[in-house]
């Protein structure tokens, strides 16, 4: 608008000539909308449109020849009876639990450790954040090699304890463990930093009062730190739920960039299932319906975890 034409000097607006005053009223009325409009135009094009059309696509049957046919809720009914879909749901939820529970516990203890006084604090905090700033694919490649059957470091270390070489990729639970390890390596430090931020908002006199009453450090952690961390915990758990249930990069890279998720689909997640249906089988309707069910899964997961966190924070 008029930033270049306006004088630099201070000039009270009520002395403006009528033309200027009209322009300044326009500025006050219209400019707020103009400033937010780029965001909302993008929102319409790349937010609202894809969501609405995902719903639309999910009601049609697409085949490879390019013909489309209305099927109503047919895709959803087919998905609910599709063993491969349920397999993907099981894998996603399984990996989510395997990854998230140890991750949040470790992050909590790590945050507690980071909350002490020691030298080089920033350097230590930065080092636990290091995994977050490395690229997912690069790290998944490294972990895939570490978990290789014949020459991987993990199997080599396990062999000291008499464990036979594990074929991490071929079997279901081992593959989940390997993928959960990748996820945890990346996110534990991040969540610890978030918990740390929460811990630092807890007033120190609470601890001092507890110490005078004879509460041990461990008791202070369970009785003060944990309940006071509830809001942070909710944020972290919801974040992990969304991230965990849409897991894609790690398991895909674990199988060489292929969305099958192993020879038997033993680590195919729902996000990989969507991509496979949509962009390998070109069954757009089916993929779109699966995407909506994934969204539903996230809503349910978020709700259940939210209630869970509220309970544990409340009873302690």
């Amino acid at each position: 608008m008029s930033i270049d034409t306006l004088p630099r000097a201070v000039r009270p607006s009520r002395h403006l000539p009528p033309g200027r005053r009209w322009r300044s009223r326009l500025d006050v009325k219209v400019m707020p909308y103009t400033l937010v409009s780029p965001y909302f135009i993008l929102f319409a094009a790349f937010g609202l449109f894809p969501l609405a059309f995902t719903l639309y696509y999910s009601l049609y049957d697409y085949d490879l020849a390019g013909t489309t046919e209305w099927t109503g809720l047919g895709n959803y009914a087919k998905l609910l009876a599709d063993e491969d879909f349920w397999n993907a749901v099981t894998n996603t939820v399984g990996i989510f639990f395997l990854a998230t529970i140890p991750q949040l516990l470790l992050a909590l203890f790590l945050a507690n450790a980071l909350n002490k006084r020691f030298r080089l604090r920033l350097a230590v905090r930065m080092s636990v954040l290091l995994p977050l700033v490395t690229s997912v694919v690069a790290v998944a490649v490294v972990f895939t090699q570490l978990f290789a059957r014949d020459w991987g470091l993990v199997n080599w270390i396990l062999s000291w304890f008499g464990v036979d070489a594990i074929n991490w990729r071929a079997e279901r639970i081992p593959s989940w463990l390997a993928i959960a390890t990748m996820v945890d390596w990346r996110w534990t430090g991040y969540n610890a930093i978030i918990f740390l931020a929460g811990m630092q908002t807890i007033p120190r006199d609470l601890y001092e009062a507890a110490a005078i009453d004879g509460a041990t450090r461990r008791r202070q952690f369970w009785q003060i730190t944990l309940p006071m961390l509830r809001p942070t915990m909710i944020f972290v758990v919801l974040n992990s739920t969304i991230g965990g249930l849409t897991l894609f990069s790690e398991p895909t890279t674990f199988y060489g960039g292929n969305v099958d998720g192993g020879s038997q689909g033993q680590f195919q997640t729902v996000a990989m299932f969507v991509v496979k249906q949509g962009f390998r089988e070109f069954d757009y309707g089916y993929a779109a319906a699966a995407a909506w069910l994934l969204f539903l899964l996230i809503l349910v997961g978020a709700f259940v975890n939210f209630m869970f966190v509220r309970r544990i924070g409340g009873t302690k």
Partner: peptide, 20 residues
């Protein structure tokens, strides 16, 4: 509305129409 878009994993949800 802005807050709502933060909560929806648009990348996974809208992938089919975006591609088309």
């Amino acid at each position: 509305l802005v807050l709502l878009t933060m909560a929806v994993p648009l990348q996974q949800m809208g992938v089919v129409p975006l591609y088309r």
